[in-house]
Design a protein around this nucleic acid. Structure first.
Length: 291
DNA sequence: ATCTGTCCCTGGACGC
DNA sequence: TGCGTCCAGGGACAGA
């Protein structure tokens, strides 16, 4: 599931494929839950335009167009943004995968989950957005139009401080993991990196936020930054669906300590990693190292 | 204001 | 082999 590192890796790669190229044609699937802007209006609004910059806000990508409009993209949990011509088994369903031997895997061809395709005047590779579960979002913002989803975002996870986290935890009954996942407090943290940073900071995910000390908040933020930065450097986590725009897998799944490792020994003390539900999410922790 | 539960969607895992 | 059932998970929203 794309979180800050995966979105940032996507941003860095897709920026070069998007910025400065004029959109000649836009293909979409039919109107659905996925489109916050009606696909017809989206196609009309994007055709002929040029992306001038691509920013990341938490887990959102914001492409600014040359007419002042902005294209808002969210990858949800199964969203993939990539260049035409790439090949990856993660872009295929299991049945399509097994039908092809590795040598025979052709470049990706748009399927029913490919909700957006931007083709460019220069005739070079198009940019595609695919999302099997449709938890992702696309919206075209008029110049100056606000978007509550963006307005609500808290401080970006890479810029958050221990002091900010500490203030946010005061008086809160919620589990600390739930607070870390709250995008209005810290933007960009999802299930994987919440579990990883709680492990690295030695804090149990179920601890009430108000019971987390100032020192632990510093430790959590330090661990969070380290984890996110390391994940960006290794290309993100490809645990289920994530592929980078160039079709390559990330590498951070091999470095994670607890996420999706229940039953495996804790890398620090050897105690089996336990899996529970916290904040309505699968949650992995070491019962000995995390208090 | 804060918190909890429900819903959106689909493929994959699992049981019979 | 094949079918049915359950589950994951980001985030919006309703209701307590």
């Amino acid at each position: 599931m794309p979180e800050l590192p995966e979105v940032e890796v996507t941003r860095r790669q897709i920026e070069g494929l998007l910025v400065g190229r004029r959109i000649a044609r836009v293909l979409t699937t039919a109107r659905s839950y996925f489109f916050l802007t009606d696909p017809r209006r989206l196609r009309r609004g994007l055709t002929g335009r040029c992306v001038t910059r691509l920013d990341r806000r938490g887990k959102y990508l914001v492409a600014t167009l040359d007419d002042g409009k902005q294209l808002l993209l969210h990858l949800g949990m199964s969203g993939q943004l990539f260049a035409e011509g790439v090949t990856s088994p993660r872009l295929l369903s299991a049945s399509a995968r097994s039908a092809l031997t590795p040598e025979k895997q052709a470049a990706f061809a748009p399927d029913r989950h490919t909700h957006l395709q931007l083709c460019f005047e220069d005739g070079g590779p198009s940019v595609l957005m695919r999302d099997v579960r449709k938890f992702g979002k696309v919206r075209l913002l008029e110049p100056g139009e606000s978007e509550p989803r963006l307005d609500k975002l808290g401080v970006d996870a890479l810029e958050a401080t221990g002091e900010q986290l500490f203030r946010a935890t005061r008086g809160r009954q919620i589990e600390i993991k739930g607070l870390l996942l709250d995008q209005s407090v810290i933007a960009g943290v999802g299930n994987i990196y919440a579990d990883e940073c709680l492990f690295r900071a030695g804090v149990r995910p179920t601890r009430r936020a108000k019971r987390v000390t100032r020192r632990e908040c510093d430790e959590l933020i330090r661990a969070l930054r380290e984890t996110l930065q390391r994940a960006i450097d290794s290309g993100g986590s490809s645990i289920s669906d994530f592929v980078a725009p160039d079709g390559r897998d990330g590498g951070y799944q091999d470095e994670r300590c607890v996420y999706a490792r229940s039953g495996e020994p804790c890398p620090v003390c050897g105690t089996p990693i336990r899996k529970i539900v916290a904040a309505q999410r699968g949650t992995h922790f070491c019962p000995k190292c995390q208090r």
